[in-house]
Each structure stands twice: as structure tokens, then as C-alpha cells.
Amino acid sequence: MSKLLVKERDVVVPGEDIVEGMDYLPSKGTYREGDKIVASQLGLVRIDGKVIKVIPLSGKYAPKRGDTVIGKVIDVLMSGWRIDIDSAYSAMLGLKEATSSFIARGADLTKYYDIGEYIAVNITNVTSQKLIDVSMRGPGLRKLEGGCFIEVNTSKVPRIIGKQGSMISMIKQATDCRVIVGQNGIVWISGTPEMEAIAIDVIKKIAKEAHIPGLTDTIQTYLDKKVPKKKIVEPKAEEQEKKPEVKDTEEKKETPSKEEKK
């Protein structure tokens, strides 16, 4: 007979016992010691049938193949760019993967992406030694000009995107901003200055309250309060929004949010 020593969604610290007995299986963020399952990370307990895992509340972004991230160009090399993706390792963007246009041999690469510029990229490969390859071939992957960037913890990203992108499209609709959320926790927001400020405020609020259930409703009411004039502008705003929306929805496809959220 197995005994659960904590409840689901409880915060556990490394070294804390979660289960006593052999009926459950340890998964991410946990390990088995003797007949106990013990947490190895600070986070929330999640029980998925017989599988126990800990969803981390903090920590650096661990690069995964297929993730869309926002990175900053930190170096221009012979045959590509080095990108800081706010993880423990920097990523490499090769020439072929950078643009669809032809780049002549010996061309000045800073014409395409210069140091300090931000780009949305897709991770194509991560090796055991954590060499990361990224690509810009794909919908919505481009240089990010204008707007502003904010940083949130990578563990909060699934909540910001929401189930099937519900949270993010809610913010987009209310504030009329273009938003791209990188899996590494960097968020790009572009719109009118006032609306940008509201969007930033809301995203920060989500990040702060990410571990509290029923967040979508809280944010909905919060947004309604913050954007009162919306009703007058609504029909016009929605039409305008259609265009950028199509472009930006692509990144939301690979949201890992479904499994994380309930």
C-alpha cells in the first residue's frame, strides 16, 4: 500500500518525501530512494495516474528541440551568428538557416542581423554537449524590431500562453498588441505605448500568480478593468488585429501547456 505524503499542487523542496511505497513511479524532478519517491527540485507536485513529477517553479531554460525562443545576437561569425537564448548555453544560427534569400560568399553578415538585435528562432538540434542549433525557417520566425521585451521565468511560459493559446490571445485581443512568447521566457510585445504598458503589466501578473489555479478568470477581470475604453474601439480593433494574428499564432502551436495545465 502506497501512501501519499503530500497533496497535488503542494510546494515541495529538494529532499522532501512525496510517496511512501512502490505503487507510484518517479518522473521529472523526482527520484526513488528505497521505497520512497523524493523531490529533487523546488516545485509543485503533479500526480498523473501512477506517475509523480515535480513542475519546477524556477530555473534556467533547458533547450529542447522544436521550441520557439527569442534570442539576442551576441556575435557575428564567419558562417553564422551566435545567439544568446537566456539558457546555460548560447545557440548557433547557421547561414543557410538564417534567411530565405541568397547570401553571397563573403557578404557582410551584419546587414542581416547585427549584434544586439533580437530574433525569434526555432531550436533544431541540441547535442549531449549542449551545442544548440537554431533556424529561422518557419512561420513567424523573424527579426523583432520595435516593441519591447520582458523576461519571465521559463516555467511560467505555459501559463502565459494558456490552453491552446487562450491566455495570450485574450491579451492580444484586449490590448491590440502583437505578442510573441519564447519558450525561454522572453516575451516580445509591440503596440501603442499605453497598451504595451498594460500588456506588460498583465504578463508580469500572470508570471507572479502562475501557481494559483483559476488564473484565466482573474486575468480576464483584471484586463476588463484595465482596458475600459475597449468597447468603443472593439469592432475596428478586431479587424485590424486579424492580420498580425495570423502571423503570430504559429508559435503557439507547440505549447507544452496542455500537459502542464489542468
Binding site: P14, G15, G29, V38, S40, Q41, P56, L57, S58, G59
Partner: peptide, 11 residues
Amino acid sequence: LADAGITMKDM
């Protein structure tokens, strides 16, 4: 270390 989300088997 725990607050930084680093994997550790114990404190």
C-alpha cells in the same frame, strides 16, 4: 540553490 531551481537530491 534550491530557489534557483537546480536539481539537487537533498538540502
